[in-house]
Write a protein that binds this DNA or RNA. Structure first.
Lengths: 239, 239
DNA sequence: TTTCCCCTCCCCCAAAATGGGGAGGTGCCG
DNA sequence: CGGCACCTCCCCATTTTGGGGGAGGGGAAA
């Protein structure tokens, strides 16, 4: 199994890589080693910011960003619905927008086949590690079958490196909620209203309000709904 | 590398396993193969329901459920904050409740060392694949270093099998939101109120209301906050 | 073609949440 | 000891939401 050894070698180099440039070198080496047209790492954070690195043509990347294809791309939508690596064929391409998107992607040189590994983070973070290739279904089925394990391993190692590049958001995210705030916000997120929360926590409705206001302030939220959204996105509450 | 071969053999058997009983057999084989005290798969879904299988003493599992330790367990809280496998030592055990929990866990036979792989799903689903062992820090460091890759692979395969056992929730979860509903709910989740959403979408405030009510109905939510929480948990909106 | 869902708009009114104050207790850390 | 963060309680006025109606046009699917 020389392929595996070569892969492991690249992964070891990846561990030593520094900066986005290092990741770029590694991803090209991996693409070459796995003998596919494209390999891409795509990161989306809770604010909707995204970045990535990979071998897609820059024009396509630019187009994708300009058109805000993030909200159209069935790969994004589909992987948001899944735990597991997914073959693009199994995604939902039924909408008109999706088919137009697919056609355009192929015209830019993105392969007609693809396979993406989703990785989900605590703050609404979401990363995709993708291989894409032009070829028929049979070839591609063989590829995905033999390389699923490798893709898993690669995506994990790569993602870990990519996280090191993330600007440290802990200062703003470190705003933890107090236990009672967590209680209150959690119950609200579960569909309770303030009165029910108060009863459930055996405190006055007004106290609940103080907690929610406090949580709202800490989370920089405009209202309760916003606060709940942020608390969930940041993994502060378990709904 | 006979260890790897044996592991792969077990994983192949796991692929064939059927039912929770099959997983139980597999997890015991894996525990034995990796030579640790305990191996556990723990699943938490968006409703707060949980189940699992593994080698923890039944008394501890019962105690955990009875006491609702889900909301205390630093392994749960910590893995909710992380992308990556984590050594229990790196978690936050500073709170009184956490230390009491740890002490009680050890008294029930859970090892003092542990290593958990978090896997996050689209519907607020969350699974943990854990190995736990009693031993000193040096031994454990060696173990984690050599077995991280295996743990990744195992947790993936195991999780995929476990998902097959999940009751099919697609009927209730398949309730996708219409594009405008997604727009409205997304903006609400971003802290806009109805009037702002209306302005932002260039539609009447009343229309926004119709969308939100519709989304609330589809999501089975009690109010807007609940609807937003569910939409985020189910990955229907990207905040 | 009929049916169904989606998008868009309007009315009224009751209920709930929010924002602005203030106040007292505990417990921890420097 | 003095702050600081946390937990708990109260009033009032205002804003926001929710629930009940109804109505028309468009597109897709059966």
């Amino acid at each position: 199994m020389t392929a595996t050894t070569a892969l492991e070698h690249i992964l070891e180099e990846l561990e030593q890589a520094e900066g986005l440039a290092g990741l770029q070198i590694a991803i090209e080496a991996l693409r070459s080693e796995m003998n596919v047209d494209h390999m891409v790492y795509h990161w989306v954070d809770s604010a909707g910011d995204q970045y990535g690195c990979g071998t897609y043509p820059p024009e396509w990347v630019q187009r994708y960003l300009d058109q805000n294809y993030l909200r159209v791309d069935p790969v994004i939508a589909g992987c948001y619905q899944r735990f597991h690596p997914v073959d693009w064929k199994r995604l939902d391409w039924s909408s008109k927008a999706a088919r137009a998107f697919q056609k355009e992607a192929i015209s830019y040189g993105v392969g007609n086949q693809g396979f993406s590994v989703p990785i989900r983070g605590p703050n609404g973070q979401f990363a995709l590690f993708t291989v894409s290739h032009s070829g028929n279904d049979a070839e591609w089925a063989t590829f995905t079958k033999t390389h699923t394990k490798n893709m898993l391993l690669i995506s994990h190692v790569f993602n870990r490196k990519a996280l090191d590049l993330e600007p440290d958001r802990t200062p703003e995210h470190a705003q933890a909620l107090s236990p009672r705030e967590v209680d209150a916000v959690t119950l609200l997120a579960m569909g309770y209203n303030r009165a029910q929360v108060a009863q459930s926590l055996a405190i006055s409705e007004h106290t609940v309000r103080v907690y929610v206001e406090s949580a709202r302030f800490k989370l920089g939220a405009m209202d309760t709904t916003h606060a709940v959204a942020r608390a969930i996105s940041r993994g502060l509450i378990v709904v």
